[in-house]
Amino acid sequence: MCNTCGCSITPGNRPLVLAEKPRDGVSTVTVLKNLSSKNDRQAEHNRAHFDRHGVLVVNLMSSPGSGKTALLEATIKRLAGSLKIAVIEGDLETENDARRIQALGVTAFQITTGTACHLDAHLVHNALHQMDLTNLDVLFIENVGNLVCPASFDLGHHRNVILLSVTEGDDKPAKYPVMFRAADLMLISKTDLLPYLDDFSPNRAQQSLRNLASKAPVLELSAHQPQNLDVWINWLHDALKTHRRQLANHQTQRPAIARDDVLLHGEASLRLRPVMPESTRP
C-alpha cells in the first residue's frame, strides 16, 4: 500500500487506474475515495470527543449469545473500585442488557436499532449526548450480536475485542474473515463448558485466526470463573495505560485494522482527464 503520500493507489488497483481510456464527449474523474466517508467522519468526531475525556473505548463484537453481557458483568465486578466504567448497549429491541449493567451500579445507555444489524458512528454519537464521560476510564460498546456488519463500521472506538464462545464452531474466523481480521484481541469464552464439548478446540480456533495473518492475542476465559479473568483484566489495564500514554503525546489509538484503512483509503485524490468536446475536434 502507499504509505508515503496517503493516496489510495495501491499496487493492487494501480493497473486498473492506469488502464482508463477517455471516451468521446465524456470526461473521466478519478476519485479513489472511501465509500463509508460519512460514517468515518462521524467516527473521527466521536474519537476526538473520547480522547478529550481520556476514555479508552472498547468495541465488543461477537455472534448473539456468546456471552458479551455476562463478560461485562463479571468485568465490572472485578474492576469495582479500580476503574470507572460505562457501557453502551446495542440491540435490535429491549433494554434488558442495559438493565443488567445498571443493576451493578454502572451507567449504561441502551441503543435499540430497530431493524439495523449493527451500530454506526451516528448512533453512538447520539448516545454520547446522554452520557457524562467525565472521570471515566473505560467505555465498553457492546455491539449488536452479528459477525458480519458491525465489522464494517468505525464507531470512533480504540480497540476491537471479539468473542468466540466454545459452543460455536472453532472455524468461525475462517467463515467470517472480515470480522475476525478486525480483532485486536480474541476472547474464547464459556471455557467452563469445554469438558462437555468434544468438537471445539481452542487451538484450532486460534489457528483459524492465525490463517488470517492476525497477530491479535487470544485469551481463554469464562465469565463464571472469576479466577480465570486475570489475563483479560490485565489486558484492559495495559490497553488503558498505552492509551493514556499516547494521549499524553497527542496521539490516539485506532483498532489495528482501521489504521491500515486510513493509510490505504486516505483522502480523496481528484484529477481531471482533459477531454476535448467533440465539436472542437479537428
Binding site: 500500500m1 495501491t10 499496487p11 493492487g12 476519485v31 479513489l32 472480515v178 481480521r181 485494522i257 483509503h265
Partner: peptide, 12 residues
C-alpha cells in the same frame, strides 16, 4: 497489500 478496499474509483 490490497483486498479490503471499497472505493469510488472513477466517474464518467
Amino acid at each position: 497489500v490490497s483486498g479490503d478496499e471499497l472505493i469510488l474509483a472513477r466517474v464518467e
